[in-house]
């Protein structure tokens, strides 16, 4: 996309005010999540700073021991919930982005490669990918998380395995369409190495649909991570992600201490919904059939 294309794209995007707000929310959440150590009132992972006597305090409570103002209350370990949410968002965003980026790179390369080589290799690769796509990502991630054990790297591996196929299918479809165009045939008939044709010509043209898939899949990765953590299959307890905060608060919810689950959940949902709205808008803009 050239510069005028980009500014035109932005002009169209700006027409949808909801999408602009959503984009701002995504940027804001990302920024606060990354800056969590700088702005959080407390380091929720440092057990020494936690006051057990402050456990399960409602929002607005001021600690008698430290004078800390718990704006969103505290969890069962006496963590300041606001700090825990900021750190939890940080983990969610990093894991979601890492899984999304790796799945993107892996899937897009695989899909474009399959489209490029063609023949039996292509048929076999795409068959495997289709098979995997028909299998729900959450089950795959669930089993992998269980088999691999807990930890960030394991979690990202599970998420990538569950998601790369979406990128591969999209890249394959777009690259296949591109592969058969004459300019690619022409480029392939030159002595340029084939991988350069794939990366220079085929993949860039597969970008728009891949970007749409990427926004959806990053949101999915974040949701999936939260779900696995909620089920106790995600990250270790010492570094609670949003999903685990919610899971820990679940038992207290039934006795009316809603905030331990609700606030981390709200943070999670705001992020995911905002990403999806942005993704929807991009999809609508890239869909030629809806253009007037």
């Amino acid at each position: 996309m050239n510069e005028t294309g980009l500014s035109r794209f932005w002009a169209d995007f700006a027409q949808n005010r909801v999408a602009v707000v959503a984009l701002a929310v995504v940027a804001l959440v990302m920024a606060t999540a990354l800056a969590a150590p700088l702005i959080a009132p407390q380091n929720p992972y440092d057990l020494a700073t936690l006051q057990l006597s402050d456990a399960r305090r409602p929002p607005g409570h001021v600690s008698a021991l430290t004078g800390l103002h718990y704006w969103l209350g505290t969890d069962a370990q006496g963590r300041d919930l606001l700090s825990a949410i900021l750190y939890g968002l940080r983990i969610s965003v990093m894991i979601g982005a890492a899984a999304g980026a790796i799945a993107f790179a892996l899937g897009a390369t695989l899909g474009a490669f399959a489209a490029y080589v063609g023949g039996r290799t292509e048929a076999l690769l795409m068959r495997v990918i289709d098979l995997q796509l028909s299998f729900p990502a959450i089950l795959l991630a669930l089993v992998l998380a269980a088999v691999l054990g807990q930890g960030k790297a394991q979690l990202v591996t599970a998420l990538v395995t569950a998601q790369y196929a979406y990128f591969a299918r999209t890249a394959h479809g777009a690259a296949k369409a591109e592969r058969n165009k004459e300019y690619v045939e022409a480029a392939l008939s030159t002595p340029l190495p084939a991988w350069r044709v794939v990366f220079r010509h085929i993949l860039p043209n597969a970008m728009p649909p891949l970007i749409v898939v990427a926004t959806v899949q990053i949101a999915n990765a974040i949701a999936l991570e939260a779900t696995l953590s909620f089920l106790g299959l995600g990250l270790p307890v010492s570094e609670p992600s949003l999903g685990m905060l919610i899971a820990n608060g679940f038992q207290y919810m039934l006795s009316g201490r809603y905030w331990i689950s609700i606030y981390p959940g709200v943070a999670l949902i705001v992020l995911i919904v905002a990403i999806n709205i942005v993704g929807d808008q991009i999809r609508d803009q890239l869909n030629p059939r809806l253009q007037r």
């Binding site: 949101a219 949701a223 939260a226 779900t227 909620f230 089920l231 999903g243 919610i246 679940f250 919810m253 039934l254 009316g256 809603y258 689950s261 609700i262 959940g265 999670l268 949902i269 995911i272 919904v273 990403i275 999806n276 709205i277 929807d280």
Partner: peptide, 22 residues
């Protein structure tokens, strides 16, 4: 539908329990 699409299932479950049961 955007909410249903975006919000994780487990979270909706919690909200349903909190609202209709608790």
């Amino acid at each position: 539908s955007v909410l249903g699409f975006s919000v994780p299932t487990f979270w909706i479950g919690l909200v349903l329990i909190f609202t209709f049961a608790v």
